[in-house]
Amino acid sequence: MSSISKVARSREDKIFDFINFTLLTIFLIAILYPLWFVIIGSISNPDRIFAGDVLFLPKDITFEGFQRIFADGKIWMGYRNTIIYTVLGTTVNITLTLMAAYALSRKDLFGGKVIMLLLVFTMFFSGGLIPTYLVVKQLGLVNTMWAMILPKAVAVWNLIVVKTFFEMTIPKDLLEAAKMDGCTNFNFFRRIVLPLSKPIIAVMVLFYAVGHWNSYFDALIYLNDEGLYPLQLVLRSILVQNEASISMVSDLESYAAQKRIAELIKYGVIIVATLPLLIVYPFIQKYFVKGVMIGGIKG
């Protein structure tokens, strides 16, 4: 069979494969090289970076940037807050999304189509930033950790994907058989639906967790207490406003030395902020494509 397929390949097929492989390789390099440069730049001598000597391998390796990053209290504070927001927020997101999606996937839900229509309506027309801020303020959530969690407790698109997954994966006969055995709706959801939904749960955990981990705009709007700042807002101060970098290099008298170390810190904080997600992703990668494909076939 393999020999027949090899003979059957035409010249046009080989040209197409070559072009396809070339383009994908270029795209891969364009994506991976900036990440690689950040890694080697974080441990290279800044003078060699400014001189253009650092291209593919680090030069004059130094870990001073990471030493100053981990010695700064704001980084650890941001890490702590972000972990809290991510874990607690994702738990709230997953709980509400799964429960709402399962209810909406049931044909016997009274007014289910109307509820779904109202939810989809919010995807196209939102209240806007100022009305949303006023609602959050009236609820007393401003300058609290709940301002980072409750306003975005459910993403409608994720809700639709999970609802579609339930409709395609959970047979009606399974529910009827469970009811005949005296199983309640809640027990059916907890004991049967959830164990069968591991792929889509893993996908939703990834989506929500990444959203919480990378969130900084909500903190910029709703939080005034630096003790509640997430890591990404601390990172923004370092990369954009250069505030934390100045505090980290205040012991250096020379302005030139401060700028050199500040460059190391900028590269280092990017790695520090993204490393946890890069570590977690491989463990749920096997569920990712399967969950998205199953949940996204039917709208």
Results as ranks from 00 to 15, higher is better:
L88V: 15
G89A: 09
G89V: 12
T90N: 11
T91Q: 02
V92N: 04
V92R: 07
N93Q: 13
N93G: 10
I94C: 11
I94Q: 02
T95G: 07
L96D: 00
L98A: 15
A101S: 13
A101I: 06
K107H: 11
L109A: 09
F110W: 13
F110T: 14
G111S: 00
G111H: 00
G112M: 05
K113D: 14
V114Y: 02
V114A: 11
I115V: 13
L117I: 14
L118S: 14
L119D: 05
V120D: 07
V120I: 15
F121K: 09
T122H: 10
F125P: 02
G127F: 10
G128R: 07
L129I: 14
I130T: 11
I130Y: 02
L134H: 08
V135N: 02
V136T: 13
V136Y: 05
V136K: 09
Q138Y: 10
Q138F: 02
L139T: 10
G140H: 06
L141M: 14
L141Y: 03
V142H: 00
N143Y: 00
M145K: 06
A147W: 07
I149R: 03
L150R: 05
P151T: 08
K152H: 12
V154T: 05
A155T: 07
A155K: 05
A155P: 01
W157I: 10
L159A: 03
L159E: 00
I160P: 00
I160Y: 06
V161G: 06
K163Y: 03
F166R: 04
E167L: 04
M168V: 14
M168H: 05
M168Y: 08
I170A: 11
I170R: 04
I170T: 12
I170S: 04
P171F: 06
K172C: 00
K172M: 13
L175Y: 12
L175W: 12
A178W: 01
K179S: 11
C183H: 11
T184L: 07
N185Q: 11
F186R: 08
N187W: 09
N187E: 15
N187H: 13
F188L: 02
F189H: 10
V193Y: 04
L194W: 01
L194S: 08
S197W: 05
K198Y: 06
I201C: 12
A202M: 11
M204K: 11
L206H: 00
L206E: 10
F207C: 05
F207A: 06
Y208F: 13
Y208I: 07
V210I: 15
V210E: 13
G211H: 10
N214I: 03
F217W: 14
D218K: 08
D218T: 01
D218W: 09
L220E: 09
Y222G: 02
D225P: 02
D225N: 01
E226S: 13
